[in-house]
């Protein structure tokens, strides 16, 4: 399970960084999204991977702490997801505005010359 998660985070980060460095605004925004998925998974992983361990206390009684997982990273992930989502939406609007002003989807607002 650890291997799959770390490979997943690695693949997401690598493709995110690659796309972030591409010249089209759409690639940049997809890159940022992938990067934020990778980050969210990473935060989640920092609470250690546990199976069948809920983060919420059982109302019947606390029991022993070993049967629960750390709830803090999960709370952090929620916050990070919400903020990341809002920022992506905002970036999308700016992207469209830039497209409208310059007529191109290049990040510098003009096509690169190849001559």
């Amino acid at each position: 399970m650890e291997l799959i998660l770390s490979a997943g985070i690695g693949a997401l980060t690598a493709s995110g960084v690659y796309l972030l460095l591409r010249p089209r605004t759409y690639q940049v925004i997809i890159g940022l999204s992938l990067l934020s998925y990778a980050v969210n998974l990473f935060i989640f992983g920092m609470g250690r991977l546990r199976v069948n361990a809920p983060p919420v206390l059982d109302p019947a009684g606390a029991g022993d702490l070993a049967s629960y997982t750390d709830p803090v990273p999960q709370a952090l992930v929620l916050t990070a997801i919400v903020i990341g989502f809002a920022m992506t939406a905002l970036f999308l609007v700016v992207l469209l505005a830039s497209r409208g002003f310059t007529g191109t989807d290049h990040v510098d607002g003009r096509e690169q010359r190849h001559d």
């Binding site: 920022m87 905002l90 970036f91 700016v94 992207l95 505005a97 830039s98």
Partner: peptide, 13 residues
């Protein structure tokens, strides 16, 4: 908008 695009991308990263 151009400056903002760069600024936002950098800060999100």
């Amino acid at each position: 908008v151009k400056a903002g695009l760069h600024y936002i991308a950098i800060n999100l990263a």
